[in-house]
Design a protein around this nucleic acid. Structure first.
Length: 933
DNA sequence: GTTTCTACCTAA
DNA sequence: TAAGTTAGGTAGAAAC
């Protein structure tokens, strides 16, 4: 699938009419302190074309959409956002027709030619299940529906919003619960369909309150009543996040290409009643209607793995506080600049680079400067003492006039920026902290200036962009307070939030992040001088604009380097959730999405979990460390993907869990297992668990990523592939976490405690096996000893003196031990540490060898050097100590240490006793000093 | 002056 | 509403 190049983009497009080139030949760029023009690195110069009246970076409209004939041409696009709205019923032959408002799903996406698409999807309705009462039959469905409908409608009272029917259908079906093994037997369930997603909650609550004769009131366990509507839809229609969607010819209907769809066929089957086409409601180039039963979601194979030429806009704003150095307030302080950079996914050069400036600004090479300047100039201010009263009054009047004009300019700037955004029509909006700063500031500022046309940044024309606060509290990510900004159809891909989620850095300023990932500093304009630069002249404002543009360029470059978009799209595809979920939600929803898909294939239902206080359960073993400095090689053996492999090997799943001893009695002993924690599960020969299947999928995807990693030469792309395989591993690991999630969608302590109990048993067994085999009694020169181990690893001192010998024994031992465990459990030799400093549980360091010749790196775990809750100086000091201890063993320091390390096997040096008194840490100039004892 | 609890962060 | 897990080190405050 070819991506769209800039050449095609500009084809036939006029430059933006409002744009005025500020100068035909830009003056020289200002230089940074070291004399190097730091911007040349990222801003391509278009000087060669300086005399042209159509400079680069001004064509931002999308290519014109092709003329499609819906009766013969399919419409194919990559969907990037899915949501729903409540609208009037439009599709004939669907349940709920004519009963009032119905939910309509919406897919936003991009075609391979770079056209934006919105597809309204009709006819899909929310539902949930309850077990059918004993002796229930189809003839009872109507009574049941009516009783529940009455209850829900009564519950709605004043908030009915024209809803005429709440419960649309009650049907019988054969299903089984996912939770527990019931001999593969199906039983009768009732599928309750309601007219709107928001009615699921009251219906689910009231279903246990109604009395349906002759069954009476029943306290139902409800199933799948807690599934997000989008996820429900995607699971049922086989759509995964960011998949390619094909609307076959004859199955969809245009809203905005009246010239090509004059007599389009009706959606939902050849009824005689010709429908009037709906007018378009979005700003997408192609807007269509389709039935939820009539589209194809392509599996991510072959050409359907491609990524459409998605438009990414990065922007950054500058605002100037009235008071120097104060934090700007949108109520009072103006937005003085907005820089915008746009690229197509897959390309490195931006096709738009501009900056909106309040007041004049000198030209910047390669950047379209759009000036919003007042006619009058800022009046010259002389020191008060020198001005006469008349002069002062005149000055103040001029100042007021100037400021009023400036306000008008700012209003215009905001207005035109919103228009620019709509014309550019980005699929992805990025930047640095845009969600919690730039966007709220712009929205608040537009409100303060009464720019009524501003807060319409989404793709739905009349839908206002709104803001609200939300808190995200998870044990894994901690508590986070964020703004939620509604920009329908565009994904807010805030790089700051992404880095906060995916990385653990000491500092998250754009500057330090750029340095960390791009090896490049951005020279910060300190916020205290922004106001002065703005109050200066067109050159000082230009300087500010250059920084502003750079702040918009950097997120794009970071996004590209870290391959964030691709990785997130991959994650959405693998786990099946919408792209936006990967950014804004936790791990659980991904597991739920996968679980629901697998369950659906087998007619299994997920119960709604009633949250009650869960018991705590035991986790992993940490082998008591034999603390010390080891001057001989230590081999490390690891179980790869321990918990996932345990779940696979022992078929641990909701669907294989045996609750009652009476159930076990119906099985032969070879049909089930007892886990070390005393729980029982049927073997895969009886029924294969869903969780093991999901894990197989994830781990095979990981294998693929690792294979690609092996082929990849570019070091940064290697890191990215490494990141992907790590993400898949994390996803696989979170399957275990999901079953143990205390406040979760479906915790199952039997599974999680069985997993950890197997793990404990395995690490014990590995320790025993290796120590029992590699001993003097068996003819080996030394008694091997496991000096440490944590969860899935054992560190073995074989006693041999060389890395090569240690590796040889390590490989052999790993193979020997692996053979004692069922597939796919595998203990692998991973590395040798030599020398190795074992300080404490979860605190150690060593030189890391994967080949006998040279060490790969110095590996530090849990020590101050890798922790972020101490000052950098402490980390550096400890790092130096570790270098001296591990690397310069025969240097001066060695002597210092040597007095304490007489016998390498007898620990003397305990680095944890190096106490650093942080109070004595001080800073002088650019250097830090520490006093330590 | 010791023990206990809490916050924070990391290992796996 | 939605939020992966337990084990465990270290530092400093609070409790005894």
């Amino acid at each position: 699938m070819a991506t769209l190049g800039p050449r095609q983009l500009s084809n036939g497009l006029e430059p933006h009419p409002k744009r005025q080139r500020t100068s035909p030949s830009p003056p020289p760029l200002p230089s940074s302190q070291d004399g190097r023009d730091f911007l040349n690195d990222c801003l391509p110069d278009d000087d060669e074309d300086a005399t042209s009246s159509q400079p680069a970076m001004v064509h931002w409209k999308r290519p014109p959409p092709p003329k499609l004939d819906p009766s013969s041409d399919p419409l194919v696009f990559q969907q990037i956002d899915i949501d729903y709205y409540v609208g009037a019923s439009t599709v004939p032959g669907m349940p709920g027709m004519g009963t009032g408002p119905v939910p309509v799903l919406r897919m936003f996406g991009v075609t391979s030619d770079g056209n934006s698409v919105c597809s309204h999807i009709h006819g899909f309705l929310p539902y949930f299940f309850v077990p059918a009462p004993r002796d229930f039959s189809t003839q009872h469905c109507a009574t049941f529906r009516s009783a529940l409908n009455t209850a829900v409608m009564g519950d709605l009272r004043s908030s009915r919003d024209n809803i005429r029917e709440a419960v649309l259908a009650v049907e019988m079906c054969r299903k089984s619960s996912i939770y527990g093994f019931y001999f593969n037997e199906m039983s009768d369930f009732l599928r309750v369909t309601v007219s709107l997603p928001k009615l699921v909650a009251p219906a689910r609550r009231l279903v246990s309150c109604i009395s349906v004769p002759p069954f009476g009131q029943i306290d139902y366990q409800v199933y799948e009543a807690n599934i997000d509507f989008e996820v429900r839809f995607m699971v049922d229609t086989g759509v995964v996040g960011c998949s390619w969607i094909e609307l076959p010819a004859g199955k969809y209907r245009f809203r905005n290409q009246s010239q090509t769809c004059g007599t389009g066929t009706l959606i939902g089957g050849g009824g005689a009643s010709e429908m009037k086409p709906h007018p378009p409601v979005t700003r997408c180039q192609i807007e269509v209607d389709v039935s939820y039963e009539d589209f194809i979601s392509h599996l991510q194979e072959g050409e359907w793995q491609a990524i459409a030429p998605v438009r990414i806009l990065s922007f950054d704003i500058e605002c100037a506080a009235k008071k120097k150095g104060a934090f700007p307030e949108a109520q009072r302080d103006p937005v003085i600049q907005i820089a915008n950079v746009a690229v197509l996914q897959g390309e490195t050069e931006p096709f738009v680079k501009n900056v909106f400036t309040l007041d004049t600004c000198a030209p910047i090479a390669g950047t379209d400067v759009r000036v919003f300047a007042p006619e009058t100039k800022l009046p010259k201010y002389e020191a008060e003492l020198r001005m006469s009263e008349a002069e002062l009054r005149k000055y103040e009047a001029e100042l007021r006039k100037y400021e009023a004009e400036l306000r008008k300019c700012e209003t215009q700037l905001l207005k035109e920026w919103a228009e620019f955004l709509q014309e550019l029509d980005p699929d992805i909006i990025t930047g640095y902290n845009i969600v919690n700063f730039d966007l709220p500031y712009l929205l608040n500022r537009a409100k303060a200036l009464k720019v009524d046309s501003f807060p319409y940044l989404g793709r739905v024309r009349d839908s206002r962009t709104t803001m609200r606060d939300s808190t995200f509290d998870s044990r894994a990510y901690g508590k986070r307070v964020n703004k939620i900004i509604s920009i329908e159809g565009r994904i807010q891909f805030d790089l700051f939030q992404i880095l906060l989620r995916d990385t653990k850095l000491r500092s998250y300023t754009l500057n330090s992040v750029s340095y960390h990932f791009l090896g490049e500093q951005k020279e910060d304009v300190h916020h205290s001088i922004i106001t002065d630069l703005q109050k200066g002249n067109e050159q000082t404002r230009r300087r500010l604009a250059v920084y502003c543009v750079k702040d918009a360029v950097l997120p794009i470059r970071l996004l590209d380097k870290l391959m964030c978009l691709i990785n997130y799209m991959e994650m959405a595809r693998v786990t099946g959730v919408p792209l936006a979920y990967v950014l804004s939600r936790g791990q659980q929803i991904k597991v739920v999405s996968q679980l629901l898909r697998k369950a659906r294939e087998k007619d299994l239902l997920m119960p709604v979990h009633k949250s009650e206080a869960q018991e705590e359960y035991a986790g992993a073993t940490v082998i008591e460390p034999s603390r010390g400095y080891y001057n001989i090689p230590i081999a490390t053996l690891d179980f790869s993907s321990l918990y996932p492999s345990i779940m696979q090997a022992h078929n641990l799943c909701y669907t294989t869990l045996l609750f009652k001893s009476t159930d076990r009695e119906r099985l032969t002993p070879d049909q089930y297992i007892r886990t070390p924690s005393g729980n029982h599960f049927v073997k895969s020969s009886v029924r294969k668990g869903l969780l093991p299947e999901i894990l197989e999928d994830l781990l095979s995807a990981r294998k693929k990523a690792k294979a690609e990693l092996k082929e990849e030469k570019d070091s940064f792309r290697r890191k990215v592939l490494d990141g992907r395989q790590l993400a898949l591993k994390l996803s696989a690991n979170s399957v275990y976490g999901f079953t143990g999630a205390n406040v979760g969608k479906l915790p199952c302590i039997e599974i999680s405690q069985s997993v950890t109990s197997f793990g404990r048993q395995m690490i014990d067994q590995s320790k025993n096996l290796v120590e029992r085999k590699y001993c003097v009694a068996n003819g080996y020169p030394f008694d091997a000893k496991v000096i440490y181990g944590d969860t899935d690893s054992v560190m073995v001192r074989f006693g041999v003196g060389t890395v090569a010998e240690s590796m040889e024994l390590g490989r052999e031992a790993a193979e020997m031990i692996s053979a004692t465990f069922p597939h796919p459990i595998k203990l692998e030799f991973e590395k040798v540490y030599f020398p190795y400093l074992l300080i404490n549980k979860k605190r150690y360091a060593g030189l890391f060898f994967t080949r006998p010749e040279t060490h790969d790196k110095m590996d530090c775990k849990g020590i101050e050097t890798v922790r972020r809750d101490n000052c950098r100086l402490v980390a550096r000091l400890i790092d130096t100590c570790l270098h001296k201890l591990l690397l310069d063993r025969n240097q001066t320091t060695h002597c210092v240490c040597q007095t304490e390390i007489s016998d390498p096997l007898q620990p003397r040096v305990d680095i944890s006793q190096l106490v650093i008194s942080k109070e004595l840490t001080r800073t002088s100039g650019s250097k830090e000093y520490a006093t330590w004892t």
